[in-house]
Simulated assay, not measured.
Amino acid sequence: MSLIDLLTGNQVADKAEQKFGINKNQIIALLAVAAPLIISYLRKKSQDSKEAESLNNALDKDHDGSILDDVSQADARQDEGGSILNHIFGSDKQNVESKLSQNTGISIDKIGPVLSMLAPIIMGYIGREKQQNNVGAGGLGDLLGGILGGAQNQAQQQQSSPLNDILGSVLGKNDSQSSGSGSPLNDILGNILGGGDQKKQQGGGGLGDILGSFLGGK
């Protein structure tokens, strides 16, 4: 299963729509941004050997991927999802939630609970990929980078897709606003993989500006 398959084929959006009364397309758009963003943060953390070992243990213990086969677990594990996000984003969490709320149209009081519901799904996906590729702590950085790179390649090949249509309508990204790829998902992944680091090196305004750039410059 690729990252894009997770974004388009998982039933968690239906569950979140029922629970929070949020438009399904908004939830799919949120997942399309949050999943690669979380993976990117974890990839950066995994560069530290202690963080990599901690992540490896957490994946082995709590995230075997079974949640992908039973998305009802996401609702029951929402508190756990909040703890996951606190650890991943740290002091950036409030800023991340604010930017995601602004750009998806999901109210700030709901963005945190929705993200908390999505987080165990994303971790379950990483855990399943880890198992299938027989990866240990030392290989997590490459695994996470490969997930993002594979998703970007797939996005480049699928310029026209239902997911891109959803992202275009929810995030307000069209051909004139994008980097020229004509694919909002490809723009998001491209900025996460390269644009964020580049902007930091150029002295940009931190995470808020980076998020704003790949979410349509809002």
Rank of each mutant, 00 (worst) to 15 (best):
S54A: 15
S54Q: 11
N56W: 05
N56I: 09
D62I: 00
D62F: 07
H63D: 14
D64R: 11
D64K: 12
G65W: 03
S66L: 07
S66V: 08
S66A: 11
L68R: 06
L68H: 01
D70M: 07
D70Y: 11
S72Y: 02
Q73E: 14
Q73R: 10
D75H: 04
D75W: 02
A76R: 13
A76E: 13
R77E: 14
D79L: 08
D79I: 13
E80G: 14
G82H: 05
H87L: 11
H87M: 11
I88D: 06
F89H: 05
F89M: 10
S91N: 09
D92E: 13
K93P: 01
Q94L: 12
Q94F: 03
S98M: 11
K99R: 15
L100N: 07
S101K: 10
Q102D: 15
I106K: 08
S107F: 04
S107Q: 12
I108P: 00
D109M: 02
P113G: 05
V114N: 08
S116V: 03
M117A: 08
A119H: 01
A119I: 05
P120S: 01
I122S: 08
M123I: 01
I126W: 00
E129V: 08
Q131I: 11
Q131H: 03
Q132A: 15
N134R: 12
V135C: 01
V135T: 15
A137S: 15
A137K: 11
A137N: 07
G139E: 13
G139L: 04
G139R: 09
L140R: 10
L140Q: 13
L143D: 10
L144K: 06
G146V: 12
I147E: 07
I147M: 12
I147H: 06
G149Q: 14
G149N: 12
G149C: 04
G150S: 01
A151N: 08
Q152T: 03
Q152E: 12
N153M: 11
Q154I: 01
Q154Y: 03
Q154W: 01
Q154H: 05
A155I: 04
Q156K: 10
Q156E: 13
Q159A: 13
L163E: 12
N164R: 07
N164V: 00
N164E: 07
D165M: 09
D165C: 02
I166K: 14
L167E: 10
G168I: 10
S169Q: 15
V170I: 15
L171W: 05
G172W: 00
K173E: 09
S179D: 15
S179Q: 10
S179W: 04
